[in-house]
Amino acid sequence: MNCESTQRMLYEAVDRALTPDERRLLDAHLAGCERCRSEAAVLDALIKTVEATPAAKPSEAFLSNVMAQLPATSRSSSWSSWFAPSLVFPRLVFAITLAAAALVWLYRASLAEIVENFLPVQTVAGPVTTAIRDVQAYLQAQAGAALTHLPVPVSTSVEWGSLLLVATTLAVGYLLIRAAENLHVGRSSFRIGRRY
């Protein structure tokens, strides 16, 4: 056995990965080769030194520093995180826009039918019903006027137009909130683009 293959076996011996036959070959070579014997002693001392390395301790403030950097909750989807200061604004905008889009969709679908079918007050004649009808008529007029400004051809089905509005609102709102969340959870959010 030559010195080169002996050295490879020395490193494998550290892991006790040698078979008994390989071990005997190695020992036989070491007995007659001072250079490899010296290398074996160095490697043994090196590994023992590394393994005897005392563990370093982090600073006294380590725990408090970590706890101070933690977000309000570990769950990004929990309800309480909706009220984190940096998230309130984009989520509020998102919610209002979504509600507005939903209202537009409802009114364009046929508010009158919805009200007549589902509002019991509709069956009672009198000044309250009249007032509600007036408000409905006003809102329908406003919604109709607002929709004429949408980037959707007038001939397009009303339902498709308003659905497009809702979908756009969802997409923009989602992106806005994700950006705010990344800012919220800390400066290191963009260091490594991977999940654990």
Binding site: L70, S76, S188, Y196
Partner: peptide
């Protein structure tokens, strides 16, 4: 901090 955020 990353571990806490990723506990789920």
């Amino acid at each position: 901090v990353r571990a806490y955020r990723s506990l789920d």
